[in-house]
Simulated assay, not measured.
Amino acid sequence: MDFKSVFTKNWPYKVAAVVLSVLLWLSVSADAEVAEQPVSTLLEIQVSDSAWSLREVRPAEITTTFRGGRNQVFAALSAEPVIRKVIDQVEDTVVQVPLSTSEVIYNRQLGVAPVGVSPEVVNVYLEERVGKRVAVAGRTDATAAPGVLVVGMQVAPDSVWLQGPASFVNEISEVTTATFEVGAVSARVTRQLEIALPPDLAGLSVEPATVIATVEVDSLRTRLFTSEVIATGPRALMAALDPPTVTVVVTGPAGIVDGLDPADVRVTVEIPNSFEAAASYPVAAALPDDVAGTVTIDLVPERVSAGIASDPPDP
């Protein structure tokens, strides 16, 4: 008999069988080995008394220790257990709330059991519940597709009723929406968004909890204006400007740019006390205040020469 051929025949399958056997043995050994593992636990506290709100829980970190086979204990880490408590009646601003393993909600099919909760008692700090109306600000990642401009984001309603602990509510004048994630847009987009309350402040609620958000867009428009340059400053009357007019390029939302009148575009140049003949000075353009910041303005040329006027004013 060729013993060498017996051992080398189908050797990949034999190696795989050995590896699988070792892995199976390790798995069975891990299941048989009893272990304990602390797992972060979520504590949910509901205050039934409508005159009071939850302000803070100390300590804030709750852990439950589970016991079971090592593999099962590690599996318990994948889903955070929960303890839910209800405070029906408030008699003081600080309530001591006991915690026990019998209250831990977890996946019992994992084959593990809670053997301890730390801490066993938490201090729940309560505060008088107040309410007020606050403004809502929208948030979006919207960017303009080619040929359009994002002209704003509107929310409806634009204010909500905020309730919670007095010390928190009194410091808040505005809440924001969750981010309106739309990316590049070429037309108006509308979506229902939740109000994003500050995550580090407990006991807050809003009514309504959602608003309708709309990202507004408009066509991109460019218009050219030929505007007279107006000299300003202490030596303005002595200056002769060259050229006397410049081209103003206004780019922005069509609804705004189309409504501009040539008289709305004011171009000026500051002539200082140190005015010198044939020197050049930068020009500036301004639109009415109600359109400032919504358009871009370019000037051609960007500077004008200022010579001495042939007929200077009488002293």
Rank of each mutant, 00 (worst) to 15 (best):
P114E: 10
P114N: 08
P114C: 04
P114M: 05
V115K: 02
S118N: 15
P119E: 15
P119M: 11
V121H: 09
V122N: 07
E127H: 00
R129N: 12
V130L: 02
K132G: 03
K132V: 09
R133I: 05
V136K: 09
V136G: 01
A137S: 13
G138P: 01
R139W: 09
A142Y: 03
A142C: 05
A142S: 02
A144F: 00
A145V: 04
P146N: 08
V148Q: 02
L149D: 04
Q154F: 01
A156N: 15
P157N: 03
D158G: 06
V160Q: 01
W161R: 06
Q163K: 08
G164V: 00
F168L: 08
F168K: 08
N170D: 13
A178R: 12
F180W: 11
G183C: 11
V185I: 14
S186G: 15
T190Y: 04
R191K: 15
R191P: 08
Q192P: 06
Q192G: 14
L193E: 07
E194P: 10
L197N: 02
P199W: 02
L201H: 06
L201G: 10
G203F: 04
V206R: 09
V211N: 07
A213I: 03
T214W: 00
V215C: 01
E216W: 10
L220N: 00
R221Q: 07
R221P: 00
T222N: 04
T222M: 03
T222Y: 00
R223C: 10
R223K: 15
L224S: 13
L224V: 15
L224R: 15
T226S: 13
S227P: 04
S227Y: 01
A231Y: 03
G233R: 05
R235Q: 11
A236F: 05
M238L: 13
L241F: 04
L241Q: 02
P244F: 15
T245G: 03
T251A: 00
